[in-house]
Design a protein around this nucleic acid. Structure first.
Lengths: 132, 132
DNA sequence: CTGAATCCCTGCCGATACTG
DNA sequence: CAGTATCGGCAGGGATTCAG
């Protein structure tokens, strides 16, 4: 099943699993797949990203949207996503201190990724041509 | 929801983040995104799946392909992926005992998922129209 | 309001040794 | 050949408390 019918072009396709850069023998942080999984890593992380796909948020807005999430973990997640290039952090001047977080361009591109994860996990619903 | 949208198209799109089924306030195992991440969860797991995207394998073939992976963890991963519906387990008759693992149909559909993860993690390569 | 510091507990992963 | 049994180290996550 790994080799294709002869005569056809492109015996090695770009991307997985045939891309030579996919030939890592150990889990390494430089592997693109690992980079993405690292960005999404941790409990609550995907839910936080989902909130941002709906719009910007401040710290306390997120706390209201995800009541089960503790301050510490929320803080961890925001720092982690910021470090991963998913979120931008904007300190608003004045009092009380407010910080607004928003998706970066790269963060917005997580939409299709989460959609792919959703589609695979969706038990038995085969939508034929959904456009997103 | 009985009446159709007039004027502007698609205020709520199917899929994320607007799908009502995405409105979970806590991480729950029934969320499709969580299901997929659970299937891919754990160190080495994506590398094992990659090996299977290239073809079937026995236990020792995998050990050769991924030398850094210990017997115990390999065994864990195979059991986990089998339980997640990604792999099929075939006991071959005769001696020595051999067990062949192969991707299920559902497991094969992980290919595009890993590709999406790869594409996001790929640092700065924007090919505008690559088709996979 | 937005976090950081601390503590504890759990679960993963690796190494080693052993079995059908 | 294809696993299981056991143990130990370490990082992740939750609750609570404190700080800028």
């Amino acid at each position: 099943m790994t080799h294709q019918t002869v005569g056809h072009p492109a015996p090695v396709r770009p991307g997985l699993p045939d891309d030579p850069r996919a030939d890592v023998a150990e889990p390494t942080p430089s592997c693109p797949v690992e980079i993405t999984l690292a960005a999404l890593h941790g409990r609550w992380t995907t839910l936080v990203v989902r909130e941002f796909l709906r719009g910007d948020h401040t710290f306390s807005e997120l706390r209201r949207a995800l009541p089960g999430l503790s301050d510490k973990v929320l803080s961890d997640r925001l720092a982690h996503l910021t470090g991963a290039g998913v979120l931008d952090r904007h300190r608003m001047p004045g009092w009380p201190p407010r910080v607004r977080y928003s998706l970066t361009e790269r963060g917005r591109r997580l939409g299709p990724v989460l959609q792919a994860l959703w589609d695979w996990g969706e038990p038995s619903l085969h939508r034929e041509g959904h456009s997103r």
